[in-house]
Design a protein around this nucleic acid. Structure first.
Lengths: 150, 150
DNA sequence: TACATTTATATGTATATACATTAAATACAC
DNA sequence: GTGTATTTAATGTATATACATATAAATGTA
C-alpha cells in the first residue's frame, strides 16, 4: 500500500484539497526520479527529452523558441537555454528565421531522432513498470487531472 | 475544458501510460506555479514551506536533517541546504544533537510558526480556487495516485 | 520618417534538484 | 583498544526553475 500518509510519514492532512496537492507533488517526484535514472546513461535530462519530443512532433517543420516554450510541460522553464544545451550535443539545429530576424528556427537532427528512437522502448517499459494502474484507471486519472485544472 | 492535449498542443500520445505521465508532470507545474505566486510576497519558496510544515508537525519535538529529508515530497532534494536557508531567515533553530554529535536537531521558531499561521488561510483558499474538483473526485484522485505508485 | 511600443530571444541571479564526494562521529569486528 | 565500515551532515558541481532585465528587430502611429 503506497498511501501518501505512509510515504511522507504524515498522519493526517488539513483538508482533502491539501492532501491531493501533496499527493500530486509527491507522485511527480516519484515519476521524475524514475525518468532521471532511465535517461542518465544517455546523458540527457527529462526536460531535454521533452524538448526533443516536441521537435519530433513537428515532423521536419522548424519551430521557434517561443513555440517550444508554450508546449513545454513547465511553462516557467527556459527554452532558450535548453535548446542551447541540445545544440551543443548535436541533437538540434538552430537557424535564424529569414522572414523575422528576431526568431530562431529549431530543428531536430538525425542524431536527435536516433536518440528518441533508442529511448522509446525503454521509456514504454519503464512507464508500465512504474505505473501500477490498468487502462480504465489511467483514463479516470487523466480525466480527473484535466478537470482539476478547470 | 482543460484537456492536456490542448494545454501542450499535442494531438495524441504514444500510449495511455505516456499520456498520464505527461498529465501529472503538467499538473504539478500548474500547482507549483500557483504556490510560487502565493508564497512570493512572504519571501519563501514551496520547498521551504514544505520543510516548515514538517517541523510544525513535530509539535516542539526536534527532528534531524535526515528525518526531514525522508519526509520531504522530493526525496532527492537537499534538506541540509534548505534548513540553512530557513535558519538565515530566523524560521528554524539548529543545534547539535547531544547523544550523537553527527546529527543536528532542527526546531521551528515562533517566527516560523507565525508565518505558517499567516499563510494557512491563503493556502486553503488558493487550493479551493485552483482545484476544480468536488470532494468525491478528490478522494478518487488520491486513491488512484496512491495505487499508481504501487 | 521618427519615435514609442511590442515581440523574440538571450542573459543575469537566486533557488532547487540530482548526484558525487568529503569530513566527522559512531558502530562494529577483531 | 585498533582499524574498518557505516552513518550523518555538509559541500561541490551540473542542470533546471523562477523571474527580472537587456538587446535587437519588428510593428504601430503621429
Amino acid at each position: 500500500m503506497g498511501k501518501i500518509e505512509d510515504a511522507i510519514q504524515q498522519k493526517e492532512f488539513k483538508d482533502p484539497f491539501n492532501k491531493v496537492v501533496v499527493n500530486i507533488l509527491y507522485t511527480q517526484s516519484y515519476l521524475v526520479t524514475a525518468q532521471n535514472a532511465l535517461f542518465k546513461p544517455y546523458d540527457i535530462s527529462p526536460e531535454q527529452y521533452n524538448v526533443l519530443r516536441i521537435l519530433k512532433g513537428q515532423a521536419g517543420v522548424p519551430i521557434t523558441v517561443s513555440s517550444i516554450q508554450e508546449r513545454m510541460l513547465n511553462k516557467m522553464s527556459n527554452a532558450s537555454r535548453l535548446v542551447e544545451k541540445l545544440k551543443s550535443k548535436g541533437l538540434v539545429l538552430r537557424s535564424e528565421c529569414p522572414n523575422d530576424r528576431r526568431q530562431v528556427d529549431i530543428l531536430i537532427t538525425q542524431k536527435g531522432l536516433d536518440l528518441l528512437h533508442d529511448l522509446r522502448p525503454l521509456l514504454e517499459q519503464a512507464n508500465k513498470n512504474f505505473i501500477n494502474l490498468n487502462l480504465e484507471e489511467i483514463e479516470t486519472l487523466n480525466n480527473l487531472l484535466d478537470k482539476l485544472r478547470g
